[in-house]
Write a protein that binds this DNA or RNA. Structure first.
Length: 483
DNA sequence: ATGTGC
């Protein structure tokens, strides 16, 4: 479906859907995009979803969408919406099915020369040690008691149990532990699905990527983040697996029912929400925090196995190879934060669905060693183009509740990609670019083919030109593990 | 995204 409403161009990076266009809009919707990308946006009618979000009870500031916007459940993917922490509503559709889907970057002090002739071994070892694919199960079995701790304290459980280093926690958003977690609202089914899957990558757009730091745009910040031109890095993209998916499913159902009984009038039932002050709203928020904690424990375990894989293939210790975590970001989550709204400080819940926190220098949430440089922001592109490292900027604090984009953004549906793209062509493109690909299925590769995505560089230009973030480094892939 | 389904 194509958007046929009114979209006003504000400037080279911003487009506006005015609140007077649809009844029920409480505020304007702003889409960050440029002349080239906006054509894609109009194709899937996702502007309508950005307009619908402006109807959310208690919304503060604009409904916003990042340049990687595309059609999602209720909210667009790439959507940002803040609601009043006391009067506002929380919506599972504004967070996404994969609660705390996110990206982690691990650096090394190794260069291409150090792994010469061993890239294939390294990728094969990573593929063996980190289960991936649909329905993949973790190699370590954890019990109900462990799961309870994981839902409560996230990454801290992983580090306490030997998966990684204490200092990994400082460079994970929230320290890898959402303090508001309460698992009384996490259903039996979520626990049952989560138990065997812990420590696995999953499928879809989830991946593990071996990269080389190819470009450094900001030497000073790159140095603070531990990144040097020519160094090898590992990027991990995954989430909360069936555990978070089930939490989202359970509460969407409960909230759809709530909307009917309370007669809440919204333009799309997929916008189902509940007041933060209601029992249901609070229960979902606290259960969502548990899903987020699960995802952080998951990425922390994968970090541990990544280090072990390097140790085995290269015969050196992870410490001496300098395998520190650079940062870990969540891009499907809602967070309680305080922001300046029309000149005064306000407590808000910021929904980021396919959007990344991008706090500017100085914010207390940023770990001390990065505070003067801005929060690291990790933006993966498609499997052939690699990952950008950005830093949060003041524009994000002023306009987007400290948020930016999360990736390249699809330009083709999964179905369209499978039907129209050719597996041999995709594999050849990867090989020609010198990228070793280990994937579980041809269908998975087709769904995630480079042509199914927008050009991530173009997305990055928009968020940087708009002043939300600044470029720090570009990582180019040499190996990819796909689910 | 997902034991791809009310």
């Amino acid at each position: 479906m194509v958007w046929n409403g009114k979209l006003e161009k504000v400037d080279d990076n911003r487009w506006l859907i005015s609140r007077d266009q649809f009844p029920g809009m409480r505020t304007d919707a702003v889409i960050y995009s440029n002349d080239r990308l906006i054509g894609n946006v109009l194709n899937d009618n996702s502007p309508q979803q950005a307009a619908n979000v402006a109807c959310l009870p208690g919304i503060v500031g604009n409904s916003m969408a990042m340049p990687d916007i595309h059609w999602g459940y209720g909210f667009p993917i790439g959507g940002v919406a803040a609601v009043d922490a006391y009067q506002g509503s929380i919506s599972p559709g504004g967070i996404g099915f994969d609660i705390n889907c996110g990206v982690r970057l691990i650096k090394t002090d190794l260069t291409l020369e150090d792994i010469d002739g061993k890239v294939k071994d390294l990728m094969d070892e990573l593929y063996r040690n980190i289960p991936s694919g649909l329905g993949s199960k973790g190699l370590t079995k954890v019990g109900q008691k462990d799961l309870s701790e994981i839902l409560d304290i996230g990454s801290e459980w992983a580090v306490e149990n030997g998966y990684g280093w204490e200092k990994d926690l400082e460079v994970t958003e929230e320290g890898g532990h959402m303090k508001d977690a309460d698992q009384t609202g996490v259903g039996e089914k979520s626990r049952k699905r989560g138990l065997p899957e812990l420590g696995s990558l999953g499928s879809g757009n989830h991946f593990l990527e071996l990269d080389v730091v190819d470009d450094v745009f900001d030497e000073r910040t790159a140095k603070a983040y531990g990144l040097k031109k020519g160094c090898i890095t590992v990027t991990v993209h995954c989430g909360s697996r069936g555990c978070g998916h089930q939490i989202a499913t359970d509460y969407l159902q409960k909230m759809e029912h709530y909307m009917k009984t309370e007669k809440v009038d919204l333009p799309d039932r997929q916008l189902a929400c509940a007041p933060l002050s209601s029992r249901l709203g609070e229960e979902y928020y606290r259960a969502m925090c548990c899903g987020a904690n699960y995802a952080w424990a998951n990425r922390q375990m994968i970090t541990h196995w990544t280090r072990e894989s390097f140790e085995k293939v290269l015969g050196d210790s992870a410490e001496s190879m300098g395998m520190d975590v650079v940062y870990d970001v969540a891009h499907n989550i809602a967070k309680m934060e305080s922001h300046d709204v029309e000149g005064h400080r306000e407590d808000v819940l910021v929904h980021r669905k396919g959007a990344t926190r991008a706090f500017a220098p100085g914010r207390s949430e940023i770990t001390m060693k990065y505070r003067d440089y801005g929060q690291p922001v990790l933006i993966p592109g498609d499997m052939s183009t690699g990952t950008y490292v950005l830093a949060g900027r003041q524009g994000a604090m002023k306009e987007t509740f400290g948020s930016t984009c999360h990736g390249a953004g699809r330009q083709m549906s999964r179905k369209t990609a499978i039907e129209n793209l050719n597996i041999e062509t995709v594999r050849k493109k990867m090989a020609d670019q010198g990228i070793y690909l280990r994937a579980g299925s041809d269908e998975g590769v087709l769904e995630e083919a480079p042509d199914a995505y927008k050009d991530v560089s173009e997305i990055i230009e928009v968020v940087c030109n708009a002043g939300l973030t600044a470029k720090v480094a570009k990582l180019t892939p040499i190996g990819v593990v796909k689910g």
